[in-house]
Write a protein that binds this DNA or RNA. Structure first.
Lengths: 307, 307
DNA sequence: TCAAAAGTGTTATCCTTACACCCATGT
DNA sequence: ACATGGGTGTAAGGATAACACTTTTGA
């Protein structure tokens, strides 16, 4: 092994029917029948920048024209590729997150998959996911007990990353949770299949990294709008935020927050037929990208249930 | 050109005498006599992860044992290396930011340089840097005028990234400002020497990226403490934050903020001999890393001068 | 005694949260 | 009528920003 291979990975998100989706492919070449993230190569001569290269092969493979694209992280651990491949070259992946709205029919080999198929414990919209108490926390606890020395440290780590203490659940720590579950062997045991679907190579880790980053970014940059059509109701906007954050929000305050931040402007038009009073359609005020790119959509969390 | 080269760049920060420093090297191999960021190669066989590889060669080259290390960005533009080199291989750099306290004597070839030598317009601690009005803004204005079409857009961009409008200066937009100056040709004209010192290749851009990221991170993660000894006074802490943020802070509120956030705890000890009443020495409460890693040091900005 | 730095108290203001309530449409 | 979603008012509490002021040392 004396040279390098560079791959570009794209975590392409869309939100359809209030569910967050990633674009996945089935790639025999990766030596796995699990879904993989969209993947391509840089043309070292033709692609002027990494991002342009990414856009090019995504377009070629799927026909999708990416809008918002952001570099996520570069993965280069020695063990991330199968040993056989490692003999020849060390594999790097420069991973990007992309947000699209179009619900395009993806290319033949590509499929939209629900993000929470792979990370089911991250979706708290319907309350605490049962898988936590049914499988994950018991498994983690068992893993922590046993050896005396690292036990307290492990237990504390579990408390914190899974919000068991008084600090509560922090929706941004997606990667911490994934890594803890991975270390604890949750994905390599008999019941691995109950802990969500797997992905090829370390793609599930990349997905976790991307989700955590996106959840953070939502709060201080107006990126949600990349996932919406030009006109949308405030509830649609809220649902998209909720689907990514994995949390329910309190409507009245959400509306005010968004409006006060000047993120949207009402078009006079109304949107009816959804079973209630017709809602006004809003549009993203593109000016804020220039004015105050620090603004985002905050997360006024849901008041604790009274009962 | 059909293969890839991968380099690891480290933006190693320290704060000495209230000034932020970067570790620089003089590397003939880069075809430039300008200082460069510390740079090394990954051993594809020996280094298990990118970060471990980075720590290894930094130790070998400078004797520094890095503490906090964070991946910054991967740079891979086709034109970032000299054309000659590009014929053979495409050069990637995975850049990291590292924070150290030790004021080690760096290795023979390495030097600590003041960050603001390279980005002088970013230091607002003594008020608005004169270079802005003396050189940069006039240059940008001249660049914006001329062609009719992009003029308004260019002018707006200048207003915003340099805080000329009512939004004011946003200390985090370091990269935006660097890129705007670069596009406007500030670094390739006669007076380039007045616009701060240059660096090899695109290292100045990497430095700008790192500073912006660090300034953002300061506000929500307790990273400053990596740049301080175990015991410090609150003013020392404040000075370190100020030197990185490039802004003066208001002491009474800064203290309270830090204490209320539970970031520090008083050791009974005092530290005198600095020309005033002795200050209590504080220590970082390492627990917060586990408890609430979302806490950081906010920036209670200085009240506007009354005159 | 004065300068320099360490610290404390207190207010005005804004933002967020929580809860109560009314409005308009389809069935 | 009533369910569903749209939308407004408002008061309590907390965080922040601003300013005034006291304390303790060294020169």
């Amino acid at each position: 092994m004396k040279h390098f291979e560079i791959g570009l990975n794209a975590v392409i998100y869309a939100v359809t029917e209030d569910e967050p989706r990633v674009l996945t492919v089935l790639d025999e070449g990766l030596g796995s029948d699990s879904p993989a993230l969209a993947w391509g190569r840089l043309d070292p001569v033709g692609d002027r920048t990494l991002e342009l290269g990414l856009r090019r092969w995504v377009r070629e493979q799927t026909g999708l024209e990416l809008g918002y694209v952001e570099q996520l992280y570069t993965f280069g651990d020695r063990e991330r590729a199968p040993a056989a491949a490692t003999e020849e070259a060390r594999l790097f992946s420069v991973a990007y997150v992309a947000l699209v709205w179009e619900e395009e029919p993806p290319g033949r080999l590509a499929t939209w998959r629900n993000v929470y198929d792979f990370l089911p414990w991250e979706d708290w919209r319907e309350g605490r996911p049962p898988i936590l108490d049914r499988l994950l926390v018991p498994h983690l606890r068992a893993w922590a007990s046993g050896r005396p020395t690292p036990r307290a440290a492990r237990e504390e780590r579990i408390e914190i990353t899974f919000g068991l203490g008084d600090a509560g659940w922090d929706e941004e720590r997606v990667l911490d949770r994934y890594e803890l579950l991975y270390e604890a062997g949750v994905f390599s045991q008999r019941h691995a299949a109950q802990a969500g679907d797997g992905m090829a190579l370390d793609h599930r880790r990349i997905l976790a990294t991307a989700l955590g980053r996106l959840r953070g970014k939502l709060k201080y940059r107006p990126v949600v709008f990349e996932l919406l059509p030009n006109h949308f109701t405030l509830l649609q906007l809220q649902r998209v935020v909720e689907s990514l954050a994995g949390v329910r929000l309190y409507k009245p305050n959400f509306r005010r927050l968004v409006e006060k931040a000047g993120l949207v402007e009402g078009t006079g038009k109304l949107h009816g037929g959804t079973g209630g009073r017709p809602a006004e359609l809003f549009a993203f005020r593109r000016e804020v990208l220039r004015e105050r790119p620090a603004s985002g959509v905050g997360l006024p969390s849901l008041p604790a249930p009274t009962a």
